[in-house]
C-alpha cells in the first residue's frame, strides 16, 4: 500500500438545498502518494482539490471509500492525532494560521499541544525556523511580516510537529510573486534535502511544473495525471477545461498544428528556446 492511499473517496458537503441535487465535492477519487514524492494537484476553484486535501489529515472523513495514512484508516477516531502528526496541513490564508503574538511562540504551538518536552520544543522550533529561513525573525510579531514570510512561518509551525508529509492548500493564492517564489523554493528545499513528502494544491500551473507528478482535477474527479511533461503536453485537453498551460507549451502545440516536427513539448523558457533553435535551424 502507498504511504498515503486514497481509495474511491466520495464526499459531499451537507448542503440541503431544495431543487438542487447534492453534488459530490469529491466524486470517486483513487490516488496513491509515495514517501518522498512531490505531488501537485491542480484544477479550478470548486473542483474538489481543497476538499481532497482536508481528507489527507482526517479533517474531513469520506462519505464512502477510504483514506489510509501510513496504514492507518483516517476514519478511526483514535488515530486522528497520530495522523495529524504524520500529515501536516498548511492553509491558504497565512494570517489565520498564526495563533501567537511572537513568531517562535507560534511555531511552538504544535509541539506544545503534543506535550513535547520543553527543551525538545526549543530545538524543534529553532530547526523548523531555520529550515524555512525565518530564524532571524523568531522574536518578531507575525502581523509585521510580509505575506510570504507569514506563510513560511506557518510552514515552520507544521514542520515543528515533525510530520512525514506536508500538504499545502493553495498556500500561494494570496501572495505576491516574491512571496510565491519564497514559499516554492522552501518547498522544493524541503522535498529535495529532507525527503519530505509534499502535496501542493494550487491553481498556478507554473508551480505544478516543479513537481514530480501532477494530478489534474475537475468536477471532483481526476481528469489526468502524470509527470509535468506528460500532463502539460495534453494542451488541447487542458484548454478545453480552461486550465492554464505554460506559454511555451501553447506555442509548441500551435506549431505542431501547422505541421512543424516537435518531439517534446517544452515547459520552461530554456527548453523552449532550445526547441525553437532546433526548429529554425
Amino acid at each position: 500500500m502507498a504511504f498515503i492511499s486514497i481509495e474511491n473517496v466520495e464526499f459531499s458537503y451537507d448542503e440541503v438545498e431544495e431543487g438542487k441535487p447534492v453534488r459530490n465535492a469529491v466524486d470517486g477519487v483513487t490516488l496513491g502518494i509515495e514517501r518522498g514524492e512531490f505531488v501537485a494537484v491542480i484544477g479550478h476553484n470548486g473542483c474538489g482539490k481543497s476538499t481532497l486535501a482536508k481528507h489527507l489529515n482526517a479533517m474531513l472523513l469520506p462519505d464512502s471509500g477510504k483514506v489510509y495514512v501510513d496504514g492507518d484508516d483516517t476514519a478511526d477516531e483514535s488515530k486522528a492525532f497520530k495522523i495529524r502528526e504524520t500529515v501536516g496541513l498548511v492553509l491558504q490564508n497565512p494570517d489565520n494560521q498564526l495563533v501567537a503574538s511572537i513568531v517562535e511562540e507560534d511555531v511552538a504551538f504544535g509541539p506544545e499541544n503534543l506535550g513535547v518536552d520543553p527543551a525538545e520544543i526549543r530545538v524543534r522550533v529553532d530547526e523548523a525556523l531555520k529550515a524555512v529561513g525565518m530564524y532571524e525573525y523568531r522574536t518578531h510579531a507575525p502581523h509585521k511580516l510580509s505575506g510570504g514570510q507569514k506563510q513560511r512561518v506557518a510552514i515552520a509551525g507544521i514542520l515543528a510537529i515533525q510530520p512525514d508529509c506536508i500538504v499545502l492548500d493553495e498556500p500561494t493564492a494570496m501572495l505576491d510573486p516574491n512571496g510565491r517564489r519564497e514559499v516554492l523554493s522552501t518547498l522544493i528545499k524541503l522535498n529535495r534535502e529532507r525527503k519530505m513528502t509534499v502535496v501542493l494544491i494550487t491553481h498556478y500551473m507554473d508551480e505544478a511544473v516543479l513537481a514530480d507528478r501532477v494530478v489534474v482535477m475537475d468536477s471532483g474527479k481526476i481528469l489526468t495525471q502524470g509527470t509535468p511533461d506528460e500532463v502539460f503536453s495534453q494542451v488541447e485537453l487542458l484548454k478545453i477545461h480552461r486550465l492554464d498551460v505554460p506559454q511555451s507549451a501553447e506555442l509548441a502545440n500551435r506549431l505542431i498544428g501547422c505541421g512543424v516536427d516537435i518531439d517534446r513539448i517544452p515547459l520552461t523558457e530554456e527548453d523552449c528556446v532550445k526547441m525553437l533553435g532546433e526548429v529554425l535551424e
Binding site: N57, M59, F81, R84, E85, G88, L89, L91, N93, N96, Q97, V99, E104, E105, A108, F109, G110, P111, E112, N113, L114, G115, V116, D117, P118, I121, R122, V125, A154, G157, I158, I161
Partner: peptide, 20 residues
C-alpha cells in the same frame, strides 16, 4: 479558519499541553 488551523496543529484543549 483559525479553529481549523489549530485543529490541524493537534490542538485539543489544555490537558497534556507543555510549554516551550
Amino acid at each position: 479558519e483559525i479553529a481549523t488551523a489549530m485543529e490541524c496543529r493537534c490542538y485539543r484543549g489544555g490537558s497534556g499541553r507543555t510549554r516551550m
